[in-house]
Protein backbone atom coordinates (compact mmCIF):
# COMPACT_ATOMS: atom_id res chain seq x y z
CA UNK A 1 0.00 0.00 0.00
CA UNK A 2 2.79 2.39 0.96
CA UNK A 3 4.61 2.18 -2.41
CA UNK A 4 1.33 2.91 -4.14
CA UNK A 5 0.69 5.91 -1.93
CA UNK A 6 4.16 7.28 -2.59
CA UNK A 7 4.03 6.75 -6.36
CA UNK A 8 5.24 9.98 -7.96
CA UNK A 9 2.78 9.65 -10.83
CA UNK A 10 -0.05 10.66 -8.47
CA UNK A 11 1.14 14.26 -8.69
CA UNK A 12 0.67 14.29 -12.45
CA UNK A 13 -2.62 12.44 -12.43
CA UNK A 14 -3.80 14.83 -9.73
CA UNK A 15 -2.63 17.82 -11.74
CA UNK A 16 -4.85 16.77 -14.65
CA UNK A 17 -7.79 16.07 -12.33
CA UNK A 18 -7.25 19.34 -10.46
CA UNK A 19 -7.27 21.42 -13.63
CA UNK A 20 -10.38 19.63 -14.90
CA UNK A 21 -12.32 19.67 -11.64
CA UNK A 22 -11.22 23.18 -10.68
CA UNK A 23 -12.17 24.40 -14.15
CA UNK A 24 -15.60 22.81 -13.87
CA UNK A 25 -16.24 24.53 -10.55
CA UNK A 26 -15.01 27.92 -11.73
CA UNK A 27 -17.18 27.67 -14.85
CA UNK A 28 -20.17 26.48 -12.82
CA UNK A 29 -19.91 29.45 -10.49
CA UNK A 30 -19.74 32.25 -13.06
CA UNK A 31 -23.39 32.31 -14.06
CA UNK A 32 -24.51 31.90 -10.47
CA UNK A 33 -22.42 34.85 -9.34
CA UNK A 34 -23.66 37.00 -12.22
CA UNK A 35 -27.33 36.10 -11.64
CA UNK A 36 -27.88 35.43 -7.92
CA UNK A 37 -31.64 35.81 -8.22
CA UNK A 38 -31.90 33.11 -10.89
CA UNK A 39 -29.72 30.79 -8.85
CA UNK A 40 -31.80 31.45 -5.72
CA UNK A 41 -34.85 30.33 -7.69
CA UNK A 42 -33.00 27.15 -8.66
CA UNK A 43 -32.14 26.51 -5.01
CA UNK A 44 -35.76 27.12 -4.02
CA UNK A 45 -36.98 24.71 -6.70
CA UNK A 46 -35.26 21.82 -4.94
CA UNK A 47 -37.68 22.49 -2.08
CA UNK A 48 -35.22 21.36 0.57
CA UNK A 49 -33.96 24.48 2.36
CA UNK A 50 -36.13 26.71 4.53
CA UNK A 51 -36.94 30.08 2.97
CA UNK A 52 -34.58 31.96 5.31
CA UNK A 53 -31.55 30.03 4.02
CA UNK A 54 -32.26 30.04 0.28
CA UNK A 55 -30.72 33.43 -0.54
CA UNK A 56 -27.74 32.91 1.77
CA UNK A 57 -27.02 29.61 0.07
CA UNK A 58 -27.48 31.14 -3.39
CA UNK A 59 -25.08 33.96 -2.54
CA UNK A 60 -22.35 32.03 -0.73
CA UNK A 61 -22.19 28.73 -2.61
CA UNK A 62 -20.95 30.15 -5.96
CA UNK A 63 -18.13 31.99 -4.18
CA UNK A 64 -17.08 28.84 -2.37
CA UNK A 65 -17.14 27.13 -5.77
CA UNK A 66 -15.03 29.74 -7.54
CA UNK A 67 -12.47 30.04 -4.74
CA UNK A 68 -12.08 26.30 -4.22
CA UNK A 69 -12.00 25.73 -7.99
CA UNK A 70 -9.42 28.46 -8.49
CA UNK A 71 -7.21 27.14 -5.69
CA UNK A 72 -7.54 23.64 -7.11
CA UNK A 73 -6.31 24.78 -10.52
CA UNK A 74 -3.54 26.91 -9.00
CA UNK A 75 -2.35 24.11 -6.75
CA UNK A 76 -2.51 26.20 -3.61
CA UNK A 77 -4.22 24.73 -0.54
CA UNK A 78 -5.56 22.10 -2.90
CA UNK A 79 -6.34 19.71 -0.04
CA UNK A 80 -8.54 22.26 1.64
CA UNK A 81 -10.15 22.94 -1.74
CA UNK A 82 -10.65 19.18 -2.17
CA UNK A 83 -12.48 18.99 1.15
CA UNK A 84 -14.77 21.80 0.07
CA UNK A 85 -15.42 20.32 -3.36
CA UNK A 86 -16.02 16.85 -1.89
CA UNK A 87 -18.45 18.34 0.60
CA UNK A 88 -20.28 20.26 -2.10
CA UNK A 89 -20.47 17.22 -4.36
CA UNK A 90 -21.89 15.11 -1.53
CA UNK A 91 -24.41 17.86 -0.78
CA UNK A 92 -25.42 18.17 -4.45
CA UNK A 93 -25.91 14.41 -4.71
CA UNK A 94 -28.16 14.32 -1.66
CA UNK A 95 -30.19 17.23 -3.08
CA UNK A 96 -30.52 15.48 -6.45
CA UNK A 97 -31.57 12.21 -4.82
CA UNK A 98 -34.25 14.00 -2.81
CA UNK A 99 -35.48 15.84 -5.92
CA UNK A 100 -35.62 12.61 -7.93
CA UNK A 101 -37.35 10.80 -5.07
CA UNK A 102 -39.95 13.57 -5.02
CA UNK A 103 -40.48 13.12 -8.76
CA UNK A 104 -39.42 16.68 -9.59
CA UNK A 105 -39.00 17.24 -13.30
CA UNK A 106 -36.58 20.14 -13.21
CA UNK A 107 -33.28 21.49 -14.40
CA UNK A 108 -30.18 20.67 -12.37
CA UNK A 109 -29.24 24.35 -12.10
CA UNK A 110 -25.60 23.25 -11.96
CA UNK A 111 -24.24 25.51 -14.70
CA UNK A 112 -26.99 27.96 -15.52
CA UNK A 113 -30.47 28.87 -14.42
CA UNK A 114 -33.39 26.56 -15.11
CA UNK A 115 -34.74 28.79 -17.82
CA UNK A 116 -31.46 28.75 -19.71
CA UNK A 117 -30.65 25.07 -19.52
CA UNK A 118 -33.82 23.11 -20.10
CA UNK A 119 -31.78 20.25 -21.49
CA UNK A 120 -29.87 19.95 -18.22
CA UNK A 121 -32.68 18.06 -16.53
CA UNK A 122 -31.89 16.06 -13.41
CA UNK A 123 -31.63 12.31 -13.79
CA UNK A 124 -29.66 9.38 -12.45
CA UNK A 125 -26.95 10.35 -14.94
CA UNK A 126 -26.56 13.68 -13.12
CA UNK A 127 -25.94 11.76 -9.91
CA UNK A 128 -23.46 9.49 -11.70
CA UNK A 129 -21.63 12.56 -13.03
CA UNK A 130 -21.48 14.10 -9.56
CA UNK A 131 -20.29 10.80 -8.08
CA UNK A 132 -17.44 10.75 -10.63
CA UNK A 133 -16.43 14.27 -9.65
CA UNK A 134 -16.63 13.31 -5.98
CA UNK A 135 -14.28 10.38 -6.59
CA UNK A 136 -11.86 12.68 -8.44
CA UNK A 137 -11.90 15.07 -5.54
CA UNK A 138 -11.30 12.28 -3.03
CA UNK A 139 -8.40 11.03 -5.17
CA UNK A 140 -6.81 14.48 -5.03
CA UNK A 141 -7.43 14.64 -1.30
CA UNK A 142 -5.72 11.32 -0.65
CA UNK A 143 -2.96 11.16 -3.23
CA UNK A 144 -1.95 14.71 -4.09
CA UNK A 145 0.42 15.15 -1.17
CA UNK A 146 2.85 17.49 -2.86
CA UNK A 147 0.76 19.26 -5.48
CA UNK A 148 2.39 20.70 -8.57
CA UNK A 149 1.53 24.35 -8.61
CA UNK A 150 1.74 27.51 -6.56
CA UNK A 151 2.28 25.73 -3.27
CA UNK A 152 5.36 23.97 -4.61
CA UNK A 153 6.68 27.23 -6.00
CA UNK A 154 6.07 29.18 -2.78
CA UNK A 155 7.21 26.56 -0.28
CA UNK A 156 9.69 24.78 -2.55
CA UNK A 157 8.43 21.27 -1.91
CA UNK A 158 9.91 18.49 -4.01
CA UNK A 159 8.31 15.19 -4.91
Amino acid sequence: MKPFLSWKGHRWVSLVLRIYLGGVFVLASLHKIAHPGAFALDVATYNILPLALINLMALCLPWVEIISGGLMVAGYKSRAASWLISGMMAMFMVALLIALANGLDMSCGCFASSSMSEEDAISHLTILRDATWLLMSIYILIFDRQPIGLETIIYGKRG
Binding site: I33, A34, H35, P36, G37, A40, A44, L51, A52, I54, N55, L56, A58, L59, C60, P62, W63, V64, I66, I67, S68, L71, K77, A80, A81, W83, L84, G87
Partner: peptide
Protein backbone atom coordinates in the same frame (compact mmCIF):
# COMPACT_ATOMS: atom_id res chain seq x y z
CA UNK B 1 -11.25 24.45 4.31
CA UNK B 2 -13.42 26.00 7.01
CA UNK B 3 -11.49 29.27 6.82
CA UNK B 4 -11.82 29.26 3.03
CA UNK B 5 -15.56 28.64 3.22
CA UNK B 6 -16.02 31.44 5.76
CA UNK B 7 -13.84 33.81 3.72
CA UNK B 8 -15.73 32.98 0.54
CA UNK B 9 -19.04 33.62 2.31
CA UNK B 10 -17.87 37.00 3.60
CA UNK B 11 -16.73 37.96 0.08
CA UNK B 12 -20.06 36.74 -1.33
CA UNK B 13 -22.10 38.85 1.07
CA UNK B 14 -19.87 41.89 0.52
CA UNK B 15 -20.06 41.58 -3.26
CA UNK B 16 -23.84 41.24 -3.10
CA UNK B 17 -24.13 44.71 -1.53
CA UNK B 18 -22.66 46.26 -4.69
CA UNK B 19 -24.00 43.71 -7.18
CA UNK B 20 -26.30 45.25 -9.82
CA UNK B 21 -28.61 42.24 -9.44
CA UNK B 22 -28.28 41.93 -5.67
CA UNK B 23 -30.82 39.97 -3.67
CA UNK B 24 -31.75 40.30 0.02
CA UNK B 25 -29.64 38.15 2.34
CA UNK B 26 -32.77 36.60 3.77
CA UNK B 27 -35.69 35.90 1.46
Amino acid sequence: ASVLACGASVIALAVNIFHPKSIPFIA
